[in-house]
Computed example of a mutant assay.
Amino acid sequence: MRMPNNRFVLFAVLWFMAAVYSLLFRESDGGAPPFAHFDKVAHFALFFAQFWLLAKAFMQDRLAVPYRLLFVSAVLVAAGSEMAQALFTRTREGSIADGLADVFGAAVALWLAYKVSAAKRAVKKTA
C-alpha cells in the first residue's frame, strides 16, 4: 500500500498530537460543561476530524482509501485513549460511552469520505 504524502498527512499528525495533549497531558479543570454530554460531542468531533484528515490525505493523492484499516485503527486508538485516560490521568476517566463516540465519529468521517469518493468517480465517468 502506497502512503500519501501531502499537507493532509501533516494536518492529521498535528491533530493527533493535539488530541494526545488535550486528552492525556492537560488535566480537566472540572468546570461545568456547556451542555449535557458535551464530552461525547467533543470525542465524536475529535475522531471525525482525525479520520477525515487521514481519508482526505489518500483522496488528495488519488490513492485507494483503506477504509477497513482506518476503521480498525479508530477502534484501537479509541480503546487505547480511554484506557490511557483511566490509567494515567487524575481528573479524567476512561468511558465506554466516550470510546463509542470516538468510533462513531471515525465511522461517520469514513462513510463521508466513501460518499465523496463515489461521487467523484461518478462525475468522472459521466464527463
Rank of each mutant, 00 (worst) to 15 (best):
M1L: 10
R2H: 13
M3H: 14
M3L: 15
P4E: 01
N5R: 15
L10S: 14
L10E: 15
F11V: 04
F11T: 03
F11K: 07
A12F: 11
A12R: 01
V13R: 09
L14E: 11
L14H: 10
W15A: 08
W15L: 09
W15F: 12
F16N: 01
M17P: 02
M17Y: 09
M17T: 12
M17C: 15
A18C: 14
A18K: 10
A19F: 04
A19N: 08
A19Y: 04
L24C: 02
L24R: 02
F25G: 14
S28L: 06
S28P: 02
G30F: 06
P34R: 06
F35P: 02
H37L: 08
F38H: 14
F38A: 15
F38V: 03
F38W: 15
F38Q: 12
D39E: 12
V41W: 09
H43C: 09
H43N: 07
H43T: 07
F44L: 10
A45S: 14
A45I: 04
L46N: 13
L46P: 04
F47Q: 01
A49N: 08
A49W: 00
Q50R: 02
F51P: 00
F51D: 05
W52P: 00
W52M: 00
W52H: 00
A55Q: 05
K56V: 00
F58K: 01
F58A: 00
F58P: 01
M59Q: 15
Q60W: 07
D61L: 04
L63V: 03
L63R: 07
V65F: 03
L69C: 09
L70C: 09
L70E: 10
L70D: 11
F71A: 14
F71E: 11
V72A: 14
S73A: 13
L76V: 10
L76F: 11
L76R: 01
A78G: 03
A79V: 14
G80R: 07
M83L: 15
A84M: 11
A84Q: 06
L87D: 05
F88L: 14
F88K: 03
T89Y: 09
R90W: 04
T91V: 01
T91E: 13
E93Q: 08
A97W: 12
D98C: 06
G99E: 04
A101R: 11
A101Y: 08
D102F: 02
D102A: 00
D102Y: 00
F104Q: 07
G105R: 04
A106Y: 08
A106K: 03
L112W: 08
A113T: 06
A113F: 03
K115Q: 15
K115E: 14
V116S: 05
S117I: 00
A118W: 08
A119W: 13
A119D: 13
A119I: 02
K120L: 09
A122T: 10
A122C: 06
V123K: 15
K124W: 04
K124R: 12
K125V: 04
T126Y: 09
T126G: 07
A127Y: 10
